[in-house]
């Protein structure tokens, strides 16, 4: 499968701080990719590099096989929805569609029109008067109607109420099903991503902690609980992500490709949220030791 985003040692530095460092990813096509991490971890930076809004300080990045933002053809293949769904407050909804039609050769006017109708948006209403959810839907319509191959969304549902959030994701999944889009969306909440993502990238402290298909991640991460044990005493193929101990018991979250054979352990599966949290706390612990802090 071809990669929609391919990076090699990608890094971005602002003055003295690395907002993103050592990022090597090969994101396959045909997936809905969740980019999850705490605020300030570098998610917006990575997405900005993918759209060509930012230039790398180190390393390389290729999107759909081309350089991000290089020329109209490349721009036409990638749709982008920035944080808080910016729209032109003074322009009515219909003029936003005209904007899309004039600036995109691949514009699907019928798709856009049908969508606006189904959303019950008044074409003559100024975009500034729309609710947050309606603005997000309008921005998504604009991004989808230009028929891109890849859709990049930066925290698209962060500021939406639960109903708007659900409707937004519904529309997004409908578009994915209809147009076989690849999607990369970022969020600092795992719950937003669980239903829709089948590929996950965890970004904490400007670095990629783990990346892979959700199915594989859930299959290879286990929660082990048993008598108190030193994590270092585990077999080599097992990587401890997080560990907590009482005086008699150890609970470890491990990553391993093989089965857990030691009968002393009680093995159970791990939910996506707990998996991500484990990586976040591991990175935070490491970060505290190295006195690294990404500031926003």
């Amino acid at each position: 499968m071809t990669a929609v985003i391919e990076t090699g040692g990608l890094g971005k530095r602002y003055r003295r701080l690395w907002a993103l460092a050592d990022c090597t990813l090969s994101v396959p096509a045909g997936h809905v990719v969740g980019l999850v991490g705490p605020n300030g971890a570098g998610k917006t930076t990575l997405l900005g590099l993918a759209t060509g809004m930012l230039a790398p300080t180190a390393g390389t990045i290729e999107v759909l096989g081309g350089r991000p933002g290089a020329g109209p053809a490349q721009l036409a293949r990638v749709g982008y929805l920035a944080q808080d769904a910016p729209v032109y407050a003074g322009l009515p909804v219909a003029d936003h569609l005209k904007l899309g039609a004039h600036l995109n050769p691949g514009w699907d006017a019928e798709l856009a029109r049908a969508r606006i109708k189904r959303l019950d948006l008044d074409p003559g209403q100024k975009a500034g008067a729309l609710s947050g959810g309606q603005r997000a839907q309008l921005a998504l319509t604009l991004a989808v109607a230009k028929r891109p191959e890849l859709l990049i969304l930066d925290e698209p549902v962060a500021s939406l109420d639960p109903l708007a959030r659900r409707e937004f994701l519904q529309y997004l999944m409908e578009s994915v099903g209809e147009q076989s889009l690849s999607v990369v969306l970022s969020s600092h909440l795992v719950a937003d991503l669980e239903r829709v993502c089948d590929y996950l990238i965890v970004l904490v402290g400007s670095r990629v902690q783990v990346a892979g298909p959700v199915e594989e991640l859930l299959a290879t991460h286990h929660l082990l609980s048993g008598p108190r044990r030193d994590p270092g005493s585990l077999p080599d193929g097992m990587r401890v992500i997080s560990a907590s101990h009482t005086d008699v018991q150890s609970t470890l979250l491990v990553r391993t490709s093989g089965p857990v054979l030691d009968p002393a352990w009680m093995v159970s599966g791990v939910g996506l949220e707990d998996l991500v949290l484990a990586y976040m706390s591991q990175a935070a612990g490491r970060g505290r030791r190295n006195h690294l802090e990404v500031q926003r």
Binding site: T51, M53, L75, A76, G79, Y80, V87, N104, K146
Partner: peptide, 8 residues
Amino acid sequence: ALAWNQSI
């Protein structure tokens, strides 16, 4: 972000 991510 809207204007510069159209196809121009």
